[in-house]
Design a protein around this nucleic acid. Structure first.
Length: 745
DNA sequence: GTAGGGTTAG
């Protein structure tokens, strides 16, 4: 899997001007009651002749006729026209409202459905069982405990007759909102229970980690319909029991229960979790053989499976067929999902430019931009580090009125933080204002990225004291924070806490952060002990981190020893080879230099070129060392040369010891112009292209070297300009000659 | 009415 953080733009990427375009174009159609669907000027479908006729002959005045027409629009998934009709209707009764509310609920526009429900109540229309169950479904999806409880109260006060459907909806609502007390009470008081009740119960057991109880309840069912198989397999899968889920799937085949489209969908998700492309292809084959109608959802599951298994070619193939499949039925929820799936797939596989392009065509084709696509695109902006585009997408979020839920909030926090704008990340975090582990983890990690260890730790402590359950990613964030801020003791404590209190098994990432923590503090003995104790000699990332600390502390002997260990792990990462060969070169051990080089060749290690990029207006400018492709190269070099001269006068010296760099050694002084590191080129370009007060933000795909770090410090002092550099590990904020990392990275 | 798309780390 491609890392989404260390990427390199191909050449000078033109940032699509989509969003500017979007803001102009996407003025939502303001229906009287619901302004959630944008208008698109399709010719009216055949239903419209009915529509016109009804208006002409006056039968439109008849509620039954109008409701019938509304139903037809809704059934043919023509929500725009349904909304328009709804708006034009002279009178509306409970059926009218219910059709729209339940449709919105069905397609997942939960917020819109609830809004409609509110309007309905305001107009004094009394909801019926159908309305109420739809509304409860929305509350379940949105975890709107308060509204749902209100509905429950209303039902009791108004003596609405409970049927099993309404009661199941209510039961499901309490389960989803994790109000298990009320759920239990309701379950026990229910007179009539059916298979759906049982399914919900199984789901609840699974969600609360009672796997045994769930499986037990499942086994106790005599005749098992397809839906109960689906529930148990899905539940197991989503709670980390993928293998058991797979076992049951095979059992289901043996049992002779035919798969329906949901089973296939679940099976495909299971495949993506197991990353078993072969199994995925088999299931794809079975889908085709089964003769089941491949609906939008199923097709999307296929796309998603191929994306998550890294097989973008197949994903795109299925995606492209989508066009012919959907035909004129644009903006159906399935099509919107397929677009967001393909975008997230492209982002997941590091194909950011294609993701941006796809997003653009999505806009051009007037596909609804829902929160899912936005989330993916925001995450692409984060990885790419393009603040301006990210800001525009954020603007779009506000304009379209998407709620800042945990997904969207986290991705926005991450985006601002990774684009170097911690303040805006904090602002978003404040706006979300609720406890969700991913949201809080994003914020903790953002602090860590910017070297604000204390704040990260404080936030983490606060979240724990308020009962938020941290997950493995949260601990990666906290340990990173401790390591960047030199909080050795705290880091060790959290590592123990994670294992002993929260029962989280440390992974490579946690080990690496611990080695980093000791390493930055120069506690090499502790590292060796830690590696031995945990039996992690085989982990390359651990040695890599150790090596960086050797570089930081200029410990050549240790670096040599660590490198040998690392090279034993057969890493294909060029950094350690280059570093080791540089170390040997310094000690003039030329034979060893040659050995390392040969080793690199024989193992096929590719050196990743060091790249830096900067966004100026709507264009990303990428630079590599010795880069002459930029149209303003002469101007850039001339300026850089002049700048370095001025920096020298205030103490900067570029001939500092180049020991222990994991980037290639530079050319000699005489060839200065050719030997500029990419971040210097990007900085120079940034300075000459922006106003003097504008901070410049540079992204790079490798670690920043000592010399460039010095260069940035002096430049920020000389020009009184803020420079923000994102390297592969963290941010460096240069201001008045100092760096936020405290020259310790 | 239950089961199927997006977020944090890598």
């Amino acid at each position: 899997m491609v890392s989404t953080y260390c990427l390199t733009p191909k050449a000078h990427l033109k940032i699509p001007t989509i969003v500017v375009f979007l803001l102009k174009k996407l003025s939502p159609f303001h229906f009287h009651h619901c302004k959630f669907y944008s208008h698109h000027s399709l010719p009216f479908p055949t239903t419209s002749s009915l529509h016109v006729k009804a208006i002409k002959d006056g039968s439109f005045q008849n509620l039954d006729v109008a409701n019938h027409l509304l139903n037809v629009y809704v059934k043919s998934k023509n929500l725009n026209h349904a909304c328009k009709l709804f708006d034009e209707m002279p009178r509306r009764d409970v059926r009218t409202w219910t059709i729209l509310v339940s449709t919105f609920a069905r397609v997942g526009s939960n917020g819109a459905a609830l809004e409609l429900f509110k309007n309905m109540q305001n107009e004094g229309i009394k909801p019926n069982q159908f309305t109420l169950s739809s509304v409860l479904k929305c509350c379940s999806s949105l975890s709107e405990l308060k509204i749902g409880k209100g509905v429950h109260g209303w039902i009791l006060r108004n003596g609405v007759v409970f049927d099993v459907i309404l009661e199941n909806a209510l039961f499901y609502f309490y389960v989803k909102c994790e109000d298990f007390g009320s759920a239990k009470w309701l379950f026990e008081s229910m007179e009539e229970k059916n298979s759906v009740t049982c399914n919900i119960m199984i789901g609840a057991y699974l969600d609360t980690g009672n796997v045994d109880k769930a499986v037990d309840l499942f086994r106790r069912q005599g005749l098992k319909g397809v839906s109960i198989w689906n529930t148990i397999i899905n539940g197991l899968m989503r709670n980390g029991f993928e293998r058991i889920a797979l076992k049951l799937l095979y059992e289901m085949v043996k049992d002779g229960t035919l798969f329906n489209e949901v089973t296939f969908s679940i099976a495909l998700v299971l495949v993506s979790l197991l990353k078993d492309l072969e199994l995925g292809k088999q299931i794809h084959g079975r889908v085709l053989l089964s003769g089941i109608h491949v609906d939008g959802f199923l097709r999307n599951s296929l796309i998603d499976m191929y994306c998550k298994c890294g097989e973008m070619k197949m994903a795109l193939k299925v995606f492209e067929k989508m066009d012919t499949y959907f035909g004129r039925n644009e903006n159906s929820i399935e099509e919107v999902i397929s677009w967001s799936s393909i975008i997230s797939g492209l982002v997941l596989n590091g194909e950011f430019e294609d993701a941006f392009k796809t997003f653009t065509s999505m806009v051009r084709k007037d596909i609804d931009i829902d929160a899912f696509s936005i989330t993916s695109i925001v995450s692409a902006c984060a990885s790419f580090g393009v603040l301006e585009l990210g800001r525009q997408v954020h603007g779009l979020v506000q304009k379209m009125g998407h709620k800042l839920d945990a997904h969207l909030g986290s991705s926005l926090i991450d985006m601002y933080a990774k684009c170097g704008n911690l303040d805006d990340a904090k602002r978003i975090f404040k706006q979300t204002n609720y406890m969700n582990v991913v949201l809080w983890t994003s914020m903790v990690y953002s602090y860590a990225l910017h070297g604000r260890g204390r704040e990260a730790v404080q936030l983490f402590e606060f979240s724990m004291s308020h009962g938020l359950l941290p997950n493995e990613v949260t601990f990666i964030g906290v340990l990173t924070a401790c390591s960047h801020a030199g909080l050795v003791e705290e880091g060790c404590r959290y590592f123990r806490l994670m294992k002993e209190v929260y029962g989280i098994k440390p992974g490579v990432e946690h080990f690496t952060r611990m080695v980093d923590l000791y390493g930055r503090a120069g506690q090499f003995k502790e590292i060796k002990k830690f590696i031995d104790e945990n039996g992690i000699h085989h982990l390359r990332a651990v040695w890599r981190s150790f090596l960086s600390s050797c570089r930081l502390h200029r410990d050549i002997e240790m670096a040599e020893w660590v490198s040998e260990n690392l090279l034993r792990c057969k890493t294909l990462d060029a950094g350690p080879y280059v570093l080791l060969s540089n170390i040997y070169a310094i000690k003039e051990r030329w034979e060893e230099v040659a050995t390392v080089r040969r080793l690199m060749q024989s193992r096929g290690v590719k050196k990743q070129p060091c790249q830096s990029w900067i966004q100026i207006r709507n264009q990303v400018h990428a630079f590599i060392m010795d880069d002459r492709s930029h149209p303003q190269k002469n101007e850039i070099c001339a300026y850089l040369y002049k700048l370095i001269g001025r920096l020298r006068k205030i103490g900067y010296s570029s001939d500092g010891k180049l020991v222990m760099q994991d980037v290639e050694k530079k050319q000699g002084e005489g060839e200065m112009l050719l030997g500029f590191h990419s971040e210097k080129l990007a900085t120079a370009y940034g300075i000459i292209s922006t106003a003097s007060q504008t901070p410049i933000r540079i992204m790079k795909n490798l670690r920043i070297c000592d010399d460039c770090h010095n260069f940035m410090r002096y430049t920020s002092q000389l020009l009184d300009k803020e420079i923000i550099v994102r390297d592969i590990h963290r941010f460096h904020h240069f201001k008045h000659g100092c760096c936020s990392c405290g020259d310790y990275w």
